[in-house]
Design a protein around this nucleic acid. Structure first.
Lengths: 154, 154
DNA sequence: TTTCATGTAACTTCAAATGATACGTGAGTG
DNA sequence: CACTCACGTATCATTTGAAGTTACATGAAA
């Protein structure tokens, strides 16, 4: 399967939005991500429904973040995306009659559950504010005025 | 993508083999798994290369486990399968120039790594012997003579 | 030599993310 | 009011890898 990069992608979008004052269009955000505006809208749709972002049509429209950055965790975003599959592996059958398969499912299942739970816990501990601060830490000090355009020239 | 169930499948195969004395053919094992003999051979190919199982051609041939059950961990089997992808999610880009994406990758990447490490650690702690014992625990006591055939009728 | 069973290549099927095109809707602008 | 901008969304193509299937070669035992 192709690796799911929606969480990675939407975080990229949100952090770019966080660094710019006004509304950002899907068009602009798509260029920063080297992708298509429709992909941006699709990613953002779930976030809008959860009230994490707002969108406006027409002139001067675009996307804005609708909540304080320190009150949005990666977990909130993950859930807004529709809680995509975390693991690429799984049990062959869900409710097998075969005792052998039941034993396999029990052993693998608990390991899978633990790994998922760990990841979700980590997601819950990281806020957009923290990530945004990390971006600043990574910047050569003089470049604090980096715009969406030249952010991708480096 | 479709969920990868190779580990689950190969464990099912191995535990069925563990409960029968002689060599088992791909044909027989495939019937127990409700799949195709070629799929069985494909799953077992890696295990054979790692010396976990042996195969013989011709009359009376088939597959046998080549090592004590308590010396085979799920991790051994996972590695013999070629270490398939564990996570369905990943970073959009591996070595991005964009500082924003670098920050995203760092945050997500460490969480991903932790989850993977946890799962692999769990795999390393479980042996085939333990799983096989668990199968017995799940059996109604009188059914200890369950064969491959009626194991799937219950 | 016939049969059985593995070893593999090649093809089809399937699922889901991603990319792209097209068109509808609503909000500003002139 | 007409026009443009930007989102909303349906639809289709592309991509990737697992899983299933068919076909045939190889080697071992009867």
């Amino acid at each position: 399967m192709k690796r799911d990069s929606r969480l990675s992608g939407v975080l990229h979008i949100l952090l770019h939005m966080a660094r710019q004052p006004g509304p950002q269009t899907s068009e602009t955000l798509a260029r920063a991500m080297e992708t298509n505006p429709v992909v941006v809208r699709r990613l953002m749709a779930g976030l809008r429904e959860q009230g994490l972002v707002r969108s406006e049509k027409g002139h001067g429209g675009g996307w804005v973040i609708a909540r304080d950055l320190d009150r949005i965790t990666l977990r909130d975003i993950y859930e807004a995306l529709g809680e995509p599959e975390i693991l690429a592996m799984g049990n062959r059958t869900e409710a097998p009659g075969c005792l052998v398969e039941q034993a396999v499912n029990a052993a693998l299942g608990s390991a899978f559950d633990e790994a998922e739970a760990l990841l979700l816990r980590r997601f819950g501990e990281v806020t957009l504010a923290q990530l945004s601060a990390d971006v600043v830490d990574r910047m050569p000090s003089a470049a604090d005025t980096t715009t969406l355009e030249n952010a991708h020239e480096a």
